[in-house]
Amino acid sequence: MLRLRSRDFDDDATLMMAIVNRTPDSFYDKGATWAEDAAFERVALVAGQGAEIVDIGGIKAAPGVEISEAEEKARVVDFVARVRDAFPDLVISVDTWRASVGDAVCEVGADVLNDAWGGADPELVDVAALHGAALVCTHTGGVQVRTRPHRIEYDDVVAAAIADTTAYAERALAAGVAAESLVIDPAHDFGKNTFHSLEVTRRLGEMVATGWPVLVSLSNKDFVGESLDLPVGERLTGTLAATAVCALAGARVYRVHEVVETRQVVDMVRTIAGLRPPARAIRGLA
């Protein structure tokens, strides 16, 4: 069972985590949902599309203008409260590495803390434990928050991702986060060049074999763009191909911009794999 604070999911459930940026400068939407009402409309849209989780972020991942804790809270806390009120059954994740922000959003109803920066703030695990929230434990290769990878090398990137994410999960467990509320994420592109992200994709089954539920965040990222020589905005097909590989390997949570397309790919792959029945099959059976 996967417990995301207010909601429980069976072990065979796959979950769509829709990205909702309360940022003016994220790489994909470039501020399209910077205005609170636009972000709220995005939540309504993805909830209607069947996303089980929204992942609300107040700071873009890439380097840029310093965003203070106060500013990050201003961007996300009241918004989380508004979403919680309007969508009581929707799982709310907040993309933050800061314990103080995590505490504030959990106070108003967030269910998941998605720490894209691999435990940069050591107190985040305590906040998750305090609120009974779930925690996403990512691998960044030890890079600083909001930095791009530069000449990072690993002896074995998958082994490093497994070692770091499971160590983070064990640390969270020791802090009191429930085992069923911990998810690991190899974090494509974070602390990784494209070859690293491709290898993590190719060998995702090794992460799944740890037994921790695996989240993948592939959507429109640079490793897709560099693989196909395509700019942001033209990476959906490549994203979905990577999604299919991860679905076949057993990824459980998919952090996405495009909910409908990703859901179809994941469902189709799992149906091919015999893990999900067809929606409605009568051909040759009537």
Partner: peptide, 8 residues
């Protein structure tokens, strides 16, 4: 041959 939605 079960589906998620029974065709019959």
């Amino acid at each position: 041959y079960a589906s998620l939605v029974d065709p019959v």
